[in-house]
Write a protein that binds this DNA or RNA. Structure first.
Lengths: 107, 107
DNA sequence: TTTGTTTATCGCAAAAATACGATTAATAAC
DNA sequence: GTTATTAATCGTATTTTTGCGATAAACAAA
């Protein structure tokens, strides 16, 4: 079988890239900031906060959910999204670790 | 004039997304890890480290340079890339700030 | 049961990212 | 000078992402 693209890099490299990419769109950053600010899992009125259509926002939420950053819980007709503390911690470790690893003494 | 896409979100949201997106590819993560490990600005032998062609690696380096994470300095026929400490610090502030801002008490 | 609300998904179009080989440009080595 | 080395860029093909309207699905309200 052909080599999967993922196999060209380490698990860690792939995971960092996957999480970074999920944060690599201003709408998704805005969603995260909104969820953090609200300090609780707010429902789909996220749509009302963003200058994008409902279906587009739904896609962004889906992507954040896919990589694990968000959890979505259905409550009646509404869906309640919130940050997954476990994955958030993972990001802290991965990004923090990466950033701390570099001590400037270049060039 | 039409609204630029950038204007739909705040400067901060756009900048976080831009930096995150630059890290949103395993090859670029690998480049950064390699530069950190070598602890000095190593030249284009980055190409030898990656399972990608020279032109593709060059493009990834260009992207990292575009957002400011890397600096490139020409030395003879070689080019020496290194992390820009200033932008690295900016990432620490932006990502660290974002991640620290969330205190789990959701759902 | 009918109607309204909310969210996910489908289908599609447009734009952007990824990857590579070939070529160019710049310099070093001879 | 000529030749070799290194890296950037060009052209192009493929894939992925982004975005939206329309529709569907699930539930609540009437």
């Amino acid at each position: 079988m052909a080599t999967a693209k993922k196999d060209l890099f380490t698990k860690k490299e792939n995971r960092i890239a996957e999480l970074a990419k999920a944060m690599g769109h201003p709408a998704r950053v805005a969603i995260l900031l909104y969820l953090i600010k609200k300090n609780s899992c707010v429902c789909g009125d996220i749509v009302g906060e963003l200058p994008l259509s409902q279906s587009t926002v739904s896609q962004h939420l889906k992507e954040l959910k896919r990589v694990g950053i968000l959890q979505g819980e259905i409550e009646g007709t509404k869906t309640c999204y919130c940050i997954d503390p476990k994955v958030w911690k993972e990001m802290e470790v991965l990004f923090g670790g990466l950033i701390q690893k570099y001590k400037s003494d270049c060039c």
